[in-house]
Design a protein around this nucleic acid. Sequence first.
DNA 1: GTGCTATTGATTATCATCAAGCAAAGAATG
DNA 2: CATTCTTTGCTTGATGATAATCAATAGCAC
Lengths: 274, 274
Amino acid sequence: MPGRERRSRLIDIIRLRGFAALDELVRELGVSESTIRRDLDALEEQGTARRTHGGVLYAGGLPRIAEFDEKQPANWEAKRTIAAATVKIINDEETVLLDGGTTTYEVARLLAGRSLQVVTNSMPVANLFASESRTDLILLGGFVSPRTGVCLGPYTNELLSRLHVTTTVLSAAGISKQGLFNAQLLLAETEQAMLRAAGKVIVVADSSKFGRKSLTLVSGLEAIDIVVSDSGLSEEWQQTILDAGPRLILADIPAEDVDSVGQDASAANTKIES
Amino acid sequence: MPGRERRSRLIDIIRLRGFAALDELVRELGVSESTIRRDLDALEEQGTARRTHGGVLYAGGLPRIAEFDEKQPANWEAKRTIAAATVKIINDEETVLLDGGTTTYEVARLLAGRSLQVVTNSMPVANLFASESRTDLILLGGFVSPRTGVCLGPYTNELLSRLHVTTTVLSAAGISKQGLFNAQLLLAETEQAMLRAAGKVIVVADSSKFGRKSLTLVSGLEAIDIVVSDSGLSEEWQQTILDAGPRLILADIPAEDVDSVGQDASAANTKIES
DNA sequence: GTGCTATTGATTATCATCAAGCAAAGAATG
DNA sequence: CATTCTTTGCTTGATGATAATCAATAGCAC
C-alpha cells in the first residue's frame, strides 16, 4: 500500500473512533508496527493526533463548549442527585422541554434512551438525543451562543410560541423571593417563552443558587410547579418556596453507590414535601 | 480522601478531558496507582469508561451520528479535495448556508475558524462551529432525523423562508440530466427551501454521484451556479453540466502532501472550466 | 476490647510498548 | 547502469504498564 493512502486511511480511522490502539492499526492496515509508529509520530508533529501509550487519540476533534469544560465539578454531586430525583417525576411518552445549563444537562443524560419527545434549545443536550431512536428530538433553532451552546433570539422564541409541551425543565442562575434569575438577557426571554409553552414547570437548582440574584428576572415563583434541589437547602428557604406555591423536592446525596451515573438513576433518596 | 468522592472526581476528570493517563490521575488525586487502577476497572465494568494501555477513555460520551460512523471512508479522498476546492470560492464575511452530508461536513471543517456567518440544519456541522467565536452560527431548528442528525420538517422550512444568504452549499445523493436527487422526501423540501434562500448555489458531489438517481428530484440543474466535483468525472458529464448552465470546478487529488487536512486547505489543485 | 470486612498501598514477576539502529527493497536522479 | 534517497520491516535493550499477592490501616458490629 502506498504511504499516502495509508496515512490518509489512518486519519480516517482515528477520527472515526476517537481512539485507536496501535496493534489494532497494524492489523487493519497490514503494515509493520514500526511503520504505524512512524506515521503516528508524523501525525502528532502535525497536530492531527495525540499519541498515548499503546495508541492514538484524535486531536482535531470537536471543539468543546466552554461552559462544560472550564467549570469545576463544583456542585456536581448535588447536580447529579437533583437530576436523578427529577427524572423520576417525568413519565414515558411525555413531551419534555429542556433548558440549557449543566443541571439540565445531567437530567438529559438520565433521560437518554427513554421513550419521550424532547424539545431543547441546547446543543449539548441535543447531542445526547440525536442518535437515540427511541427519543424524538425537536431542536429549537436560532442564534447559537458560543459560550453555552444554546439557541437564542427571536427565531427561537417564535418557534417556542407555537409549541406546547407537558413538562418544562428549567435551570436558573439564581433564585430569590422575587423569583427566578438568569445571567443572560436574551436567554431570559427565551425562558419566558418556555414557561408559556409548558404544562408543568420544573425548576432544577442546587442549594447554592438560593438567595442569589442575577442580571434579569425571568419569572416569579408562582409560575413554578415544582422546585427540585438538594438537602443542603436551609429551612427558611424551604418554607419560602413552599409559601410561594411550588412543590419542593429535596434530593439527598446517596449514602452509597455513587458509581451509578449512567443508565441507573435509582440511587438518590428523595424527600418530598407538601 | 473518601473513596466515593474520589471516584466521582475521577468521572468528572475523565469526562472533561475525554482521555486521562494513569500517572496523571495518580498525581492529581494523590492516591496510589493500585487504587486508581481498581477504580478504573470498576468504571469500565460499569460502562462509564474504557481502559487503554496507560490510561482511560470516557465512554459515556456523545453517542455518534450513525451516518458518520458506519460509512467507510469510501471516496473520502475525493470528498476532501472537493471540500478544499470549495472553501476557496467562499470569502470571509459571507453568510454561508451549509446542508447536511459528509461532503458538506468536510467543507465545514475547513471553514471552521474563518470569519463567517454560518447557517445550517446539520448538528454535526453545527457542533464544529458551536464554540468558534469568530464564526456566527445560526442553527435551523426542527425535527431531528436520528440517522443523519439534520433538522427537517415544516419548522425548518419556515425558518428558512425568512432567511437570505450569500452562498448555499448543497450536497446530493445523485445528479442526473434532470437535476439534483435526494434520498429523503422531507429533506428534499428543506433543500428546496435552501435554494430559495440562496444568492449563489454551490453543489458538492464526488464523481460517483453523477448518473445516479435517488428517491426525489430536488431541483433542476439550471438552478445551480457552481458544481464542484473531482477529476474522475467523465468528459460527457462535464459537458452535460456545462451545457445545462452551472460553472464546473474539478478538484484534483493532490500529488503529494495528503497530510494537510486540518487548517491547511491549500493543497488541492483545481481546474476551473468555463 | 475482639473479630470482621473493606479499602488502600507496596512489591513483585510478567508482559506490552517504545526508541534507536540497521539492512533490504524500491523509487528517483544523474 | 550506478548512485542516492526514501520507505519499510526487523531486532534489541530499555522503559513502562499490568495483574496478583500481601500487609497495613481504618472503620463497624457486637
